[in-house]
Simulated assay, not measured.
Amino acid sequence: MWTKITARNHLYDLHDDLPESPQSDSSNDLVEKSQVVLFLRRLPPLQQTVMAFAYDGCSPLETAEATGMSTVNVRQNLHRARADLARILKAEGIC
């Protein structure tokens, strides 16, 4: 009975449903993002916020609108955060 059921299902036809090329492995992206989060946590909270927005691709204007800060304040904190991150990365021997 089992062989009749499996013969009807044509299990050998499953290969037609497989994609042509393998899917990309995003595990390296996950590791990179977790490392970024670890470095951002070493910044003061306001710098963490503006850097997180910048990392996600937001402009200073978009960040200012989302956080209620002035654009000048966002840019100033971005500048400070980048300088602090450069010091952190240099101390870690990464950069």
Rank of each mutant, 00 (worst) to 15 (best):
T49C: 12
A91T: 08
L61V: 13
T67P: 02
A66R: 14
K90Y: 07
S27R: 14
L85R: 02
H79V: 05
S26M: 14
V72A: 07
M69S: 12
L46Q: 01
S27G: 03
S70K: 14
R82K: 14
S26I: 07
L38I: 03
L43Y: 02
T49Y: 04
P44K: 02
K90P: 00
L89T: 13
V74E: 00
V50T: 02
V31R: 13
P45D: 02
Q23D: 10
K4E: 15
A64R: 08
V50N: 05
S70T: 15
V72L: 02
N28S: 15
I5Y: 10
A64P: 07
T49D: 06
N9T: 07
L40R: 00
A66F: 06
V37M: 08
R80N: 05
P22R: 14
R41F: 02
T71G: 03
V36E: 11
D17A: 13
A83N: 08
G68M: 07
S24F: 09
A86K: 14
A54D: 09
L14C: 06
L11S: 14
H10F: 07
A52C: 11
Q76N: 07
D17L: 14
T3L: 12
R8A: 12
A66K: 15
E92K: 14
E32F: 11
V74C: 00
Q35A: 12
V37R: 11
A52Q: 09
T63W: 00
D13Q: 10
H15Q: 07
L14T: 08
A81L: 03
L18G: 01
S26Q: 08
L85G: 00
S59R: 13
I5T: 10
D56C: 12
P19D: 04
N77D: 00
T3H: 12
Y55R: 10
Y55W: 15
A91D: 06
H79K: 12
C58P: 00
Y55L: 12
M51R: 02
L78I: 03
L85E: 04
V74H: 00
V50S: 01
R8W: 12
T71Y: 08
P44M: 01
S34W: 10
V74Q: 01
D84V: 02
A7N: 15
I88C: 06
L61N: 11
Q47N: 06
E32K: 08
S26N: 10
I94P: 00
A86D: 07
N77K: 01
L40K: 01
L18H: 06
V37D: 06
Q23E: 10
A91N: 05
V50F: 02
L14M: 10
V72T: 09
H10K: 14
L61G: 10
S70V: 11
S27Q: 11
L18N: 03
L78D: 01
T49G: 03
D13G: 02
A7H: 12
S21A: 09
L38G: 04
E92P: 05
D84I: 03
P45S: 01
D84M: 05
P19C: 10
P44S: 07
L61C: 09
H79A: 08
P60Q: 06
D29H: 12
R75E: 10
L89A: 15
R87E: 08
T49S: 13
Q23K: 05
M51A: 08
P44F: 02
E62A: 03
T63Y: 00
